[in-house]
Amino acid sequence: EVTIKANLIFANGSTQTAEFKGTFEKATSEAYAYADTLKKDNGEYTVDVADKGYTLNAKFAG
């Protein structure tokens, strides 16, 4: 089991951190699915991958 950390950075400057656990593939998929649920209210996002894929920095356009 691994933990994927998602740093969510919103256009207004606020941030949120979420963690997803499971296999690498499952946890990564859940992190992206969570970011997708936030698109409606926060706009499209881009992701910078860090820490060999164990940290995802998602920046929302607003």
Rank of each mutant, 00 (worst) to 15 (best):
G53E: 05
E19Q: 09
T3D: 02
E30D: 15
K5L: 10
D36A: 06
Y54M: 11
L38T: 01
G13L: 05
V2F: 05
A61H: 13
A35V: 15
A35D: 02
A31E: 03
F24L: 10
D51Q: 01
L38A: 09
D41L: 13
K5R: 14
N7S: 05
K52A: 14
A11F: 09
F24G: 01
N42I: 06
E25M: 09
D48M: 11
K26T: 12
A33E: 10
V49Q: 06
D48H: 12
T46L: 09
G43C: 06
V49W: 15
V49L: 10
A6T: 10
D51P: 00
D36L: 01
G62W: 06
T37P: 00
A33R: 11
K40Q: 12
A33H: 09
Y34R: 04
D51F: 00
K40N: 11
S29A: 15
V47S: 05
G53A: 01
A61N: 12
L38H: 13
D41A: 13
G13W: 02
K5Y: 09
E19S: 10
K59N: 10
K40S: 10
Y54R: 08
A61G: 13
K39G: 06
V2E: 05
T46C: 13
K40P: 12
K40G: 11
D48V: 14
L38G: 03
A61R: 11
G43L: 03
L56M: 07
A61E: 13
V49A: 07
T46I: 11
Y45T: 01
K26A: 13
N7R: 10
T37G: 13
E44P: 14
G22W: 00
G53R: 00
D51S: 00
V49F: 13
E19M: 12
D51T: 00
A27M: 02
F60T: 01
A6S: 05
D48E: 15
G13Y: 04
S29H: 11
K40W: 11
L56K: 04
E25K: 08
A6C: 15
G13R: 04
G13H: 06
G53P: 00
N12S: 08
V49S: 09
T3R: 07
T28K: 07
L8P: 02
N42R: 10
A58N: 03
T17K: 10
A33S: 09
E44Q: 10
A50R: 12
Y32E: 03
